[in-house]
Each structure stands twice: as C-alpha cells, then as structure tokens.
Amino acid sequence: MGLALRMVRRMEAWFERMGAEYAYMATDKSNEASLRLFTVRCGYSKFRTPSLLVHPVHAHRRRVPRRAAVFRLGARDAERLYDGRFAHVEFFPADIGAVLGNQLSIGTFLAVIDDDGRWRHGEWRGAERFLASPPASWALASLWDCGGVFRLELRGASRLRRAAAAATRALDRAARWMRVPSVPDFFRPFSGWFVYGLGGDGPDAAVAAEALFATFVNMARGRAAAVAVEVAACDPLRRRIPHWRRLSCTEDLWCMKRLGRVGESDGWDWARSPPGLSIFVDPREV
C-alpha cells in the first residue's frame, strides 16, 4: 500500500470516528494520478463539476445593472433567508449562523430586479416580509475575506509581463473613465475575496447575480486583488457572472464516497445522485 493510499485510508477512518457519513475531494480533471487514486483504488464516484469564476479588481468601478437594487442584510435576516430558501441546496451547512457570524464574513447582500421602482426607493423591511411576498427576480450572496487566512502570489512571470501589467494599472488609475481592463499586481502576495451562498429565483435572477458580483468587485477596490465564486455546472446564474477566462477554472472535479461498511447503507447514496442546479460552497473550506 502506497503512502498516498495509506493517508486517504487514515483520513477516512478519522472522518468516520467524527461521525461523517460521506467524504469528498476536489481536484482538476486533468490530474490523472489523483483521479486513479480516488476513483479506482478508493472507490470514490465522480460527483460534481463546478467552475471557479474569477474577476480582477480594477481602479475603475464596474457598472451595476440599473434594473437592480442592492441591499446589505443583517446577520439575522441573512440567516433567515438562507434557512428559508437554501436549506435544500447541496452542501448547505447546518451551522449557517456560525458561517455568517464569522469575523472573515464581510456581509450578505440581496439584489432585486426593480423595474417599477418599488424596491429602489424603499427600505429593507426584513426577511419575513420578503419571504411572504418576494419580488419576481432576485439573488442573494455573501462575501468572505480569504486574505484573513492566506495570501496568493503569482511567480515566474517575465519582467516584460510584469511591466505590461503595471502599465495597465497606471493607465487605469490615471484615466478611470477609459475603463481599462487592468491587471492587478498578482506578482506580490495579494488578498482575494470569495463569494459564497450565491442563489436566486425568477426569470431575471441572473441579472441580479450580475449586480451582486459587480457590487462586490467595486467594494474590493483597495482591499483585494480579485473576487471569485464557485458555481455548479448547471447553475442558471452562471451565464451573467462577470469573470476572466484566463483567471478562472472550469475543470474542477469533485468526487465523493459514502463511508461505512457494506450493508449499512439505507439504499440511497448521495455520491451517486444526479446534480442539482446549485451548490453551497462553505467558505471555511476554501
């Protein structure tokens, strides 16, 4: 038995002692060695194929769709909305209140498509009223400051590439009206923000999600170099989320395995279930 296989076996044993029913791992589709280890030797099933979408932060502001009104929610209202509308989503944490109350959680925001102006000029009236009479289209998401735990750095870039990136930033700062797609200074340790708990409802929910993401990128100016979100392959909100392809990853692969001995199963295996429209990525695991 190789070292990697022994490590996986020991981790699975610890998971079971802690009361876990399932174990899952994330890798890249092109990582053949990892896939062979988990799917062939350890019995994991290919489970989900989410995409990590990343947008850099510029000196200029991104335009937020005018049809959208964005509200910042308090922790109690945020928890009530998540419990009321997202408890069925895959990987939704049972301790959502602890996630929202974590010091790294920047806040929760709601975007409403407001074609008649009712929401734009009104005030937030609480989660209960929202759940009782929701708007036709809306989206909800929260922000997490990954820089409070770790920082990233891009190495190996040539001096020419570094100079070109610096030139785009200088032009963006000097002439923000030009909206230059500048490249942040990824060549030194930088912070990133992660969007979690993204979801919504309605025919224009994707527009509301776009408004949220644009708002987050604008908020991150001077505080983070990039904003990222991980979405399910079938998520209808995905098509309107602004991102750079060169920074994003659409080759993620999650594999899952049900723990326990043969015969202990109740006949249903989440690891082999069909995918839902969305997933909840716990930011504590990023």
Rank of each mutant, 00 (worst) to 15 (best):
94 A>H: 12
118 R>G: 10
141 A>G: 09
157 A>G: 02
272 R>E: 09
272 R>V: 10
177 W>E: 06
33 A>S: 12
64 V>F: 03
34 S>K: 02
221 R>A: 09
159 R>F: 02
84 G>A: 07
110 L>F: 04
164 A>S: 00
167 A>N: 02
41 R>H: 07
258 R>E: 12
8 V>N: 01
210 E>L: 03
45 S>V: 04
169 R>K: 04
178 M>A: 15
214 A>R: 12
198 L>K: 06
129 R>F: 04
261 R>H: 13
107 G>K: 07
150 F>H: 12
80 R>S: 10
200 G>E: 00
269 D>G: 03
217 V>M: 01
175 A>V: 02
160 L>W: 01
9 R>I: 01
57 V>P: 09
166 A>H: 03
214 A>E: 04
283 P>G: 13
238 R>Y: 11
261 R>A: 14
162 R>E: 13
238 R>C: 10
234 C>G: 11
81 L>R: 07
44 Y>S: 11
264 E>F: 02
229 V>N: 11
270 W>L: 15
30 S>N: 14
236 P>N: 11
153 E>D: 03
178 M>P: 08
267 G>P: 00
233 A>L: 09
147 G>F: 01
219 M>H: 13
181 P>M: 06
256 M>N: 10
260 G>T: 12
261 R>G: 12
278 S>C: 14
192 G>P: 05
91 F>Y: 11
83 D>Q: 14
211 A>G: 03
281 V>Q: 13
151 R>G: 10
200 G>Q: 00
184 P>L: 01
165 A>T: 00
87 A>F: 07
94 A>V: 12
267 G>A: 08
99 V>D: 01
165 A>K: 01
87 A>E: 06
212 L>P: 07
155 R>I: 05
248 S>C: 11
45 S>W: 05
266 D>W: 07
29 K>T: 15
241 I>Y: 04
199 G>K: 03
215 T>M: 12
231 V>H: 14
129 R>G: 10
19 G>H: 14
54 V>P: 00
250 T>H: 13
195 V>A: 07
134 P>M: 00
223 R>F: 02
17 R>E: 15
116 D>Y: 06
197 G>V: 10
28 D>N: 15
240 R>Q: 15
69 A>T: 15
278 S>N: 14
60 H>M: 02
215 T>V: 06
108 T>N: 03
162 R>H: 10
146 C>T: 13
187 F>W: 09
15 F>T: 07
115 D>R: 09
203 P>C: 12
187 F>Q: 09
35 L>E: 06
254 W>Y: 12
222 G>M: 02
276 G>R: 15
152 L>M: 12
17 R>C: 10
151 R>C: 10
195 V>E: 04
245 R>H: 12
91 F>H: 10
280 F>H: 04
18 M>P: 02
7 M>Q: 08
190 F>H: 14
151 R>F: 08
255 C>N: 00
8 V>Q: 01
186 F>P: 04
182 S>Y: 00
213 F>E: 05
256 M>V: 13
